[in-house]
Computed example of a mutant assay.
Amino acid sequence: MDPWLIVGLGNPGTSYAGNRHNVGAMVAELLADRAEATLKAHKARARGAQIRLGTAGGGLPGPSAVVAVPSTYMNESGGPVAALMSFFKIPPERLIVVHDELDIDFGAVRLKRGGGEGGHNGLRSITKSLGTKDYLRVRVGIGRPPGRMDAASYVLKDFNATERKELDFLLPSAVDAIDLLVQKDLPDAQNVVHAW
C-alpha cells in the first residue's frame, strides 16, 4: 500500500510562525509530535518525517505516511510537494494538503478533494507543479478579515489572543480529521468532521 503524503502549508522562519497563513504547518507539526517524530530537513526543500497514522484493527500501527512542511515560501510550495511525491513514490490521490481557508469560519475544519484554489498561492503552486487539482485538502478555517482589511495582510498577521486560545482545540481537530481521512473514505470522513 502506498504511503500518504500530508503537507502542511506555511511560510518559513520565525517571523511567520504565528501567522494565520501558517496554520497548515502548525497542524503538520502537531501531527508529527503526536507520532513522536521530528520534522528533519529533506533534499526536496522541505522538513519531513515518516510516521504511522493512528491505529489499525487489532491495535496494529495505522497506515504509513510522510508528514512534511515545505521550506520554501508559500507561493513556491509546489516544487517541494512534487519532489516529495517523486522521492517517496506517492500518487496524487494519496496527497493531503493542510491549509488555511478564508471562506470557512475560524475554528471549523472542512475536507474536500479537488476544486479551485480560492486565491490561495500555496494551492495554486501545488496544482501547477502536479498538473492536477485532484488531491485531498484539509481546510482549516481562519475566517474573513475584519472591515476593509486586505486578505493578503490578514493572513500574514498572527492569530489574536482569543484565537490563540482556540488553537488548542482547532489544531487537534485538524489532526483528528487527517486520521479519519486516511482510515475512512472521503464522504464518511466528511460526515463526521463536518458535524463537529
Rank of each mutant, 00 (worst) to 15 (best):
K112H: 05
F88K: 02
M26N: 07
V155F: 05
L171T: 11
S153E: 15
E76G: 00
S129D: 09
L167Q: 11
K165Q: 14
V23P: 07
N191G: 06
P146E: 14
F159T: 08
A41P: 02
G143L: 12
R124S: 12
M1V: 06
L171Q: 00
V175E: 01
L167N: 09
G131M: 11
P172Y: 08
G57R: 14
E101D: 15
A152G: 09
Q183C: 00
H194L: 10
D33G: 07
P70Q: 07
P63A: 14
F159K: 12
N160M: 03
D158L: 00
G59T: 07
A177H: 11
V138I: 14
L111W: 11
A41R: 14
G147M: 10
S129Y: 07
G122C: 13
M85C: 08
Y135S: 04
K157H: 10
S71W: 01
M26I: 08
G54F: 06
G116Y: 10
I142Q: 12
S86K: 15
R110P: 10
R20A: 02
L171C: 03
T14F: 00
R139E: 03
A25N: 02
Y135V: 03
L95C: 03
K43C: 00
K165C: 05
I96N: 06
I142D: 05
G107K: 10
G58C: 07
S129L: 06
D150T: 04
D105E: 15
A151H: 04
S125R: 08
L123N: 09
P92Y: 13
R52C: 13
A177V: 09
V155A: 02
S64G: 05
G62P: 08
G10M: 13
I51K: 02
P61W: 13
R144N: 11
A83Y: 00
Q50F: 03
D168H: 12
E163A: 09
L136N: 10
S153P: 00
G116N: 10
D103P: 09
N19V: 00
G54T: 10
P80T: 10
G59M: 04
P80H: 06
A161H: 14
I104T: 11
A189M: 04
V97A: 10
A46H: 08
L171D: 02
E101R: 04
W196N: 12
A174M: 13
V182C: 11
A35N: 02
A65G: 11
H120M: 05
L186D: 06
E93L: 07
S86R: 15
A32V: 11
L60I: 00
R124C: 01
E101Q: 13
G13D: 02
R45N: 12
Q50H: 04
Q190T: 01
I51V: 15
H120D: 03
L84N: 07
W4P: 04
E29I: 00
L123D: 06
H99W: 06
D168L: 11
G13A: 09
R52I: 00
Q183Y: 02
Y154L: 08
Y73M: 12
D2Q: 15
V109S: 08
L170K: 01
D176V: 03
M149P: 10
V155R: 07
E36N: 14
I126E: 05
R45Y: 03
M85V: 05
W4L: 06
G48C: 15
K43L: 08
L111G: 10
V193A: 04
T14G: 03
H99M: 05
D176Y: 03
I142L: 09
A68F: 13
